[in-house]
């Protein structure tokens, strides 16, 4: 079983459209959407969800005002400025509370308890391209990394049970907590970038992150024809860094049209499909990635 991740650093470079294309082309796979903060992959796959589960990502402190002596020791000890005191008692701001439990430990009156906090949900679904594990972190929640770990764990379980060859993971943007949780231990990461100054800058940072976790990477340049000079710049950068290019994908309005219809671009048979379509290029990129995974 091999885990293959699609990431980007920069948001909006086309990760999900490309991942959905791979899903349609790959055959025997399990899909995992690890962009738990703003999941989109399901929107192109018409999933039928057969299991939903609460995700307990953290704990939150509660102060019982009848036992609180208002000594404010908790407030002084809280490193997250999550406790405020009124004239009567201390109260916790759940948005700031990280659930460390220090307030509960220091309270001399035993007035503070920690309780489990549901910070999102995860789902098991079936799609026409294979099983999909996805999730939704609650609004303004933390611990997205733990939820990502949950999604990957479920995808691995399903892949093992069904003896499936590949897990295809749609990753989150950025380099923080959920990205770290998505990338650690995968067999290969495809970085989807775009020919812009920000695309190149963010590619460099996410490549460093992959290096930090010893994950091999390939790069694909999406919407390459929007600025071919910049595309060459990115290709030169990859050459210098000895990163294998998986291919270029042209800007193609059919990708947006497919998205509006809720299907992968490769499954959208537009009347004007030409040789230079994004759908064809996504297929070529998948071949390059597959060859690398098999190597």
């Amino acid at each position: 079983m091999k885990e293959f991740l699609v990431i980007s650093g920069k948001g909006g470079t086309g990760k999900t459209s490309i991942t959905a294309g791979f899903a349609a082309l790959a055959g025997d796979i399990v899909l995992a959407d690890c962009d738990v903060d703003a999941a989109n992959l399901h929107m192109l796959l018409e999933p039928v969800t057969y299991h939903t589960e609460e995700f307990i990502g953290s704990r939150k402190a509660t102060i019982d005002p009848t036992h609180c002596s208002n000594c404010r020791l908790c407030q002084e000890s809280c490193r997250f400025n999550a406790i405020t005191s009124t004239e009567i008692a201390c109260t916790v701001n759940p948005l700031s509370c990280e659930g460390c439990g220090v307030c509960s430990f220091v309270c001399p009156k035993g007035a503070i308890t920690m309780h489990d906090h549901v910070s999102g949900h995860w789902f098991l679904s079936d799609t026409r391209y294979g099983p999909l594990v996805h999730a939704r972190l609650g609004i303004a929640e933390e611990n997205s990394g733990k939820l990502v770990a949950k999604v990957r764990e479920q995808a691995q379980r399903i892949a093992q049970e069904k003896d499936v060859e590949y897990i295809l993971v749609d990753g989150p943007p950025g380099t923080g907590c959920p990205v770290i949780s998505s990338i650690s231990g995968v067999d290969l990461a495809l970085i989807v970038t775009e020919p812009t100054i920000a695309g190149l800058h963010d590619l460099e940072r996410v490549r460093q992150l992959a290096g930090h976790f010893d994950v091999p990477v390939m790069v694909c340049i999406n919407k390459y024809d929007l600025d071919e000079a910049y595309t060459r710049k990115i290709e030169l950068y990859c050459q210098k860094q000895q990163i294998e290019l998986a291919g270029r994908i042209p800007f193609d309005r059919n990708v947006v049209s497919a998205l509006v219809r809720g299907i992968p671009a490769v499954a959208y048979a537009a009347p004007s499909t030409s040789e230079n379509s994004a759908a064809k290029a996504i297929g070529d990129v998948w071949q390059a990635v597959r060859n690398r995974l098999l190597a």
Binding site: D37, A38, A140, P172
Partner: peptide, 10 residues
């Protein structure tokens, strides 16, 4: 801000 709706955006 960064994309998303989690703690970093908050």
């Amino acid at each position: 801000a960064s994309p998303g709706t989690s703690c970093a955006v908050v």
